[in-house]
Nucleic acid binder design. Structure first.
Lengths: 351, 351
DNA sequence: GGCTACATTTGGATCGTTCTATATCCGGAC
DNA sequence: GTCCGGATATAGAACGATCCAAATGTAGCC
């Protein structure tokens, strides 16, 4: 695929500075890197000249020669999703503080685009990749794009297919099952018996885990889950609002719904409002993520806080730590989530 | 087999492919770039070998040799702000489609950090920079970090100080004054007479423009603006909630408030709720940005839609167009915003 | 003066590509 | 048999930095 490239004007290089100071390139290079080997006077002269000519270090050239990198690639599904935006902010914070630069890519939740994005990013030779995979992305294809050497940290979702033993990756996952378990138990404790699980794709990693957490909690409490009480939707507000009808039109409605995430819960609330139902009174519900809107919604949404910015920082730290040791076995990290109780998880009408 | 001293396998380069195929580096290079000069058979052989060895193109080396770039730097205040997150998503979309990669930096609204971030990004030799400047950033310092040649697009805010004639930049600004004018006129049309302007920093570019738009509209309608009706705050929810007291404690309260942006409006709504006041009944208000939460809040927030993702796309297109022509005069683009009427802008109690 | 020790400086070679100019092969025209 | 032109292929010098080994200068010591 042909790519367009922009022409550049001639820039000031080491050679220009060296010539102006009457020293060699090597000396200027040493000054740039703060080596103690250069004489005080020489250093001062060179530094003045660097300033005067407005020299800009060419890190790409240095990286080429030194066979190093100074960037990290970050690939997320959609920056428009506040969860990922916060995550990205956290990643960039730590990556930047470590003197690296973040190469951004977004997939729009398409495995095809993800493949193209990875292919493009990897050509820029990042030190490693933080990937929040698009739904349905396969391990084999990802490894194909990245090569076997690239340090890789998977966030939030697993890839489909096995990790080759030769090229393990690190993972950073939320404790989805336990989180949803907490929410479910909270609703049960408030007296609910007919509880549904609403939204998300059943086959995605978090979807599986969250459903599993829900079902396990219900089983522990010896409560039935009628088949109509498991409703799928895309993990966004719009599609959730659409899918709400399936739940709300049931002959025997649940008294509470554990939602896949906050966006879905907010979509359900929207749909309820349109029918004149009041969330938190006519139906209790919980979310997942604790996005800003959760606190703001009316009623406030009971949800699971995941601290996405801190997760971003953590992801960056994990990947940076891995850079030096590309061949050690992949490390799996699961972070707990915290139940934040607000008004949406009211007791059932009967109680 | 012990792995302890396993050498890190060198990356595959042109030379490896050339050697394996019995051709020269130049030929492989031509194949990579799809030149018609190579024989069909040779091309096929080389391509098979590229595949077989898992060759990854080193764009940094190519850019060095060709004196080109394949990246764009994007510097925003805070990705956690949905407005900028959407903007960034739009930028990356177009930048990626043009075969470039986005280098991300965020300033956390600090001119100091911005300086460091720009310094770090510019070493990676981006083709241009899209900058949404931190408050109080000065033209001279920014130009100092970027050098006089770097194509630059300023979004949303102006820099303090003059653009040097030698190095103009492009700007993409929202039509703040007109937008706020629309909101103000809308409230006046609904019957409000005592209207305040709430939130934002008076000295920031959008702050100045929005205040000016408000004052102009009030003047056109021959309405007074008592001095207490101009309240400042940081442009976020938290500080706005804090600053709300100043407005709500006034002896003669306004019946409506034009807010600096949605975050500020939501903060004001929050503060009202705590006092038992109902936004949209006890006080009408409007926002700016039309973030997702605006539609969701209760009551829905009347606001000005800025379509931040589309603005991001537009910014990227403007900058990409500029890459080829770095010396043409800077171009100023102002985009209109659209009034979205919801329930928060109710008529005053009297009417 | 010759020697070593230390501080400072430097000329290539090199990283992985691309560019320029030149080389080679081949078949057909003369 | 020579010459020519088109089609392919290639060697070697870039690009802007860093690394290495070696060179230079300076001082102290015998």
């Amino acid at each position: 695929m042909p790519l367009s490239h922009a022409p550049l004007r001639r820039k000031v290089t080491l050679i220009d500075i060296a010539a102006a100071c009457g020293v060699s390139r090597a000396t200027v290079s040493l000054v740039l890197r703060g080596s103690p080997l250069v004489n005080r006077d020489t250093r001062a002269r060179v530094q003045a000249e660097l300033q005067r000519q407005g020299y800009i270090y060419n890190r790409a050239a240095a990286n080429l020669r030194r066979r190093t990198t100074s960037s990290i690639a970050l690939v997320v599904n959609d920056l428009g999703n506040p969860f990922f935006a916060e995550f990205a902010a956290g990643v960039d914070e730590v990556v930047g503080a470590a003197g690296f630069v973040t190469l951004l890519g977004s997939t729009g939740e398409s495995a095809e685009r993800q493949q193209a994005v990875l292919g493009s990013l990897v050509e820029h030779n990042p030190g490693g990749v933080i990937l929040s995979p698009a739904e349905g992305s396969e391990a084999a294809r990802v490894m194909d794009a990245l090569g076997p050497q690239m340090p890789l940290l998977m966030f939030n979702r697993e890839l489909e297919g096995e990790a080759p033993a030769s090229a393990p990756w690190d993972t950073l996952m939320l404790d989805n099952a336990r989180g949803i378990g907490l929410a479910t138990e909270h609703l049960i404790a408030r007296g609910h018996r007919r509880i549904a699980f609403f939204g998300g794709h059943a086959r995605s990693t978090p979807g599986q885990q969250r459903r599993a957490g829900f079902l396990a909690a219900m089983k522990r409490a010896k409560l039935e889950v009628p088949s109509g009480f498991l409703v799928e939707s895309a993990p966004n507000r719009l599609d959730a609002a659409r899918a709400s009808a399936v739940l709300l039109d049931l002959r025997t409605r649940p008294t509470a719904a554990v939602c896949y995430n906050d966006a879905v819960a907010l979509g359900l609330m929207l749909a309820m409002g349109r029918r004149g139902m009041r969330p938190g009174r006519d139906l209790a519900l919980t979310g997942f993520d604790d996005i800003d809107e959760a606190a703001l919604a009316s009623p406030g949404l009971t949800t699971l806080a995941t601290a996405p910015r801190e997760r971003g920082r953590q992801a960056a730290r994990l990947l940076l730590a891995r850079l030096g040791h590309p061949h050690e076995p992949g490390q799996r990290t699961t972070v707990p989530v915290e139940l934040v109780i607000r008004e949406s998880s009211c007791p059932p009408p009967a109680a």
